Amino acid sequence: MKFERFVVGMLESNSYIIYDEHTLDTFVIDPGDESQTLFKYIEKNALRVKAIILTHYHYDHIGAVDDIKKKYNCPVYIHKKDALGLKTPEINHSIGGYRKPVAITADKLVSDGDQIQAGEVILEVIHTPGHTHGSMCLKVKNENIIFTGDTIFDDDLGRTDLEDGSEDEMKRSIVNKIAKWADDIVIYPGHADHATMAYVRKKNIEFLSMLK
């Protein structure tokens, strides 16, 4: 497996292109903007886009979805509890969008524990509500890598004061799931840099506060 991070849009969201280096079957996670940048990498490496996967529905993570879906005719995956927000522009644009909102209908709705496969790369869905009701993380099977969207970052947590946010849900996600991840797990969030869970346990004050 190989993957590349792209920092896109005014809010500098992380978009990830993940692929099986043998079959070139590819996932695009959270294509937030700048579709031409993503197209350039995909075409340069002759990748075959099999799916777009969204960790949640907020506008800064979905801006290039429509372009990619049209170009590669690939399905869009999202957690079932975020499906409504994805196809309701006034909701997914409510946190201050910088481009015209577009209604997007997901093709595949997933739940906790589901697996999504492209080539030999398998992503396991971990439902982590809090930032939105349907926020999810994606663990690479047989790897110590988890893509966390806006649930948890290297030094803080995702906001819970936006549409569909819940501090109570975030606390349950942290205590019941994320706190159980091993120190050598590396998180790749929706903004900012990656970090090990060992680093998170030392530096992430919001994470530590939730545990108390």
Score class of each variant (00 low, 15 high):
M1C: 08
K2G: 01
F3A: 05
F3N: 08
V8M: 04
G9S: 09
G9Q: 01
E12M: 12
E21Q: 13
H22G: 00
H22C: 10
L24A: 05
D25K: 07
T26M: 05
V28F: 02
E34L: 06
Q36E: 15
L38P: 05
F39H: 12
Y41W: 10
A46L: 14
V49R: 04
K50A: 05
A51M: 09
T55H: 05
H58A: 10
Y59C: 10
K71D: 07
K71L: 05
C74Y: 01
S94M: 07
I95P: 00
I95E: 14
P101V: 03
V102T: 12
V102L: 09
I104N: 02
V110S: 07
V110L: 06
S111N: 15
G113Y: 11
D114W: 08
Q117D: 06
Q117F: 07
T132Y: 04
M136A: 14
L138E: 04
K141D: 00
K141W: 07
I145C: 04
I146A: 03
I152A: 08
D154L: 10
D155L: 01
D156W: 07
T160G: 08
L162A: 11
E169N: 14
E169M: 13
M170K: 14
K171S: 14
S173A: 11
A179P: 00
K180Y: 09
W181D: 02
V186S: 01
P189Q: 01
G190L: 06
H191R: 15
H194F: 14
R201Q: 03
I205S: 11
F207L: 09
F207W: 08
L208D: 01
K212F: 12
